[in-house]
């Protein structure tokens, strides 16, 4: 349903661009849950913002194609795109407290989405809003509708955000680190809510997170990003059983669930390259324990089968060693 081909987002000057997203390609099928995993600064949020058309000047977006349900979002005018964005594709963000407008009641903000895409009477919109608030598990929705965001907790605000996102029955929901800013106890609740809503409505869910463990639980497929590039994509069980990219392997090794008892947790040495220290060859090469001279000199292509792709000169085999 969603097909992204060679999406690139650049910031900085034309003379010295910084690629936050670098020729990224992946897709999401109808009703499917896909996770995008990467460290902060890996471009996972920016890619989804680009899909929504929310990357602003000075950011520059280019792509061969951003297909959604038969439309090419790249080719649509802003006006046409706005009929899809917010209706068929909805998005929720990391910081519920700042993502809602402090000057308006939560009810107004949900009803606004209904007014734009569905229409109807003021009364019907209000009824639908109460219904939505109840659906996302907000107690006493009739009263909460006239609360301002600062009167609600972070978890409640995220529920409001979710209600707003599903108001127009979207076919794809993009959730950008929806639980990161919340208390640990609330995180699981919000995740459960998202998944149950996804199943009920049969909508696709693109879950952006730095937490591979969450993805393993809820997603069917995963996209691993590193420094603006997709390094590996594939179905969940395969990726977890035999990661082909060294970065994916390292991420998996760093999972506490996989740590062997009495051994220190595995970590990945080094940091993601910034605008001033991009390596010339493979972007992971300074941190990769398998890196060769070839890796340091040339960037690898994004190869493999459509179902299982990897960006590595020497992808790992089942034994966890380079081929």
């Amino acid at each position: 349903m969603l097909e992204i081909e060679d999406l690139t987002v650049e910031f900085g000057t034309v003379a010295r661009p910084f690629r936050a997203v670098d020729t990224v390609s992946f897709g999401v099928a109808e009703g499917e849950v896909v996770g995008i995993v990467g460290e902060s600064g890996s471009g996972k949020s920016v890619s989804s913002l680009a899909v929504m058309g929310l990357v602003d000047y000075p950011g520059r977006v280019s792509a061969t194609r951003i297909g959604f349900a038969g439309n090419d979002l790249k080719a649509l005018s802003n006006r046409e795109r706005r009929h899809i964005v917010g209706k068929d594709i909805a998005m929720i963000f990391q910081e519920p407290m700042t993502s809602l407008n402090p000057c308006y009641t939560v009810g107004f903000q949900i009803m606004e989405a209904l007014r734009i895409h569905i229409g109807g009477t003021r009364r019907s919109r209000r009824e639908r809003t109460v219904e939505l608030l109840a659906q996302v598990g907000i107690p006493d929705p009739g009263a909460r509708i006239s609360n301002f965001p600062h009167q609600l907790s972070g978890g409640m605000n995220q529920r409001v955000m979710i209600a707003m996102a599903i108001a127009c029955n979207p076919r794809l929901l993009i959730a950008d680190e929806p639980t990161t800013a919340l208390d640990v106890t609330i995180q699981a609740q919000i995740m459960e809510l998202l998944i149950s809503l996804q199943r009920e409505h049969g909508m696709a869910l693109l879950l952006i997170t730095h937490d591979l463990a969450v993805v393993a639980e809820v997603a069917q497929r995963v996209v691993i990003m590193y420094a603006g590039q997709v390094v590996e994509t594939g179905p969940i069980p395969e990726i977890f059983q035999s990661p082909r990219h060294p970065y994916t392997a390292a991420l998996l090794d760093a999972l506490p669930e996989r740590a062997k008892a009495h051994e220190p947790l595995n970590t990945i040495p080094g940091v993601v390259p910034g605008p001033f220290d991009r390596p010339q060859g493979c972007l992971l090469s300074p941190r990769c324990r398998f890196a060769t001279d070839h890796c340091h000199a040339t960037q690898p292509a994004f190869g493999g089968t459509p179902d299982r792709r990897v960006r590595c000169h020497t992808p790992l085999g089942h034994d966890g060693l380079p081929t």
């Binding site: 917010g86 909805a90 910081e95 700042t98 993502s99 407008n101 903000q109 734009i116």
Partner: peptide, 17 residues
């Protein structure tokens, strides 16, 4: 540049709105 502006745009609100 605030977050809720991004939310509004993600909702499909017109630039005027």
């Amino acid at each position: 540049s605030d977050d809720y502006i991004r939310t509004a745009r993600a909702k499909g609100v017109s630039p005027f709105g």
